[in-house]
Amino acid sequence: MVLEIKNLVKTFKQADLSKIEVLKNLNLAVQKRDTVAVVGQSGSGKSTLLSLLAGLDRQTSGSLKLHGKELGELSEIEMTQFRAENIGIIFQQFYLMPHLTSLENVSLPLEMFGYKESQERALEAMDQVGLMDRVKHFPHQLSGGESQRVAIARAIVIRPSILLADEPTGNLDNATGFQVADLIFNLVQTTGMTMIMVTHNKDLANKCSRQMTLKNGTFE
């Protein structure tokens, strides 16, 4: 079992100090190599779930285990380390560092931890996403599809066991979106990663091995 969620609850305080429960007693188990699509309307709690899975936020109650580790029990530094070693994230808006080249963006997570072979591995990742001819380009010199592919390369360069994707084709046109989606699924398949993807796109969701619909904070 890669991911195990039991009775997961996340509440937020509102400005008037009342509480709003965004995630209500969620339960989910994800096996290795599973690809799970989380679909749902805006405000259903998809992004909140993703931020909890990425360890960027803490649950209010319940259990969230990744590789048997209870994320809620990890300190901020332990969580950061855990994320850096196990979780790759792809954002809808790509979020590349504007002042770094494609290659530097990709090697960033490795360099941060002082890996000697960061260059080689970044080049390998760039090769995997088919952008060897764009290694020295800066983000503003890339198209949307290319930018997202760089972001994918950056997510996989650490060889994560789980890939979290937040609307990875949301900012791309249809044709490019399909290409990027194919790339992600191919990579997931070849590397044996587990993927959890938040999307509105039904075609993309259909490509996943499982679909979970989030409505009002619970899985339908």
Partner: peptide, 16 residues
């Protein structure tokens, strides 16, 4: 702040 958030999402601690 966005760049700092990206760095943190990639594994940088707040101290870093």
């Amino acid at each position: 702040f966005r760049e700092l958030s990206i760095l943190m999402s990639l594994g940088a601690t707040r101290q870093q």
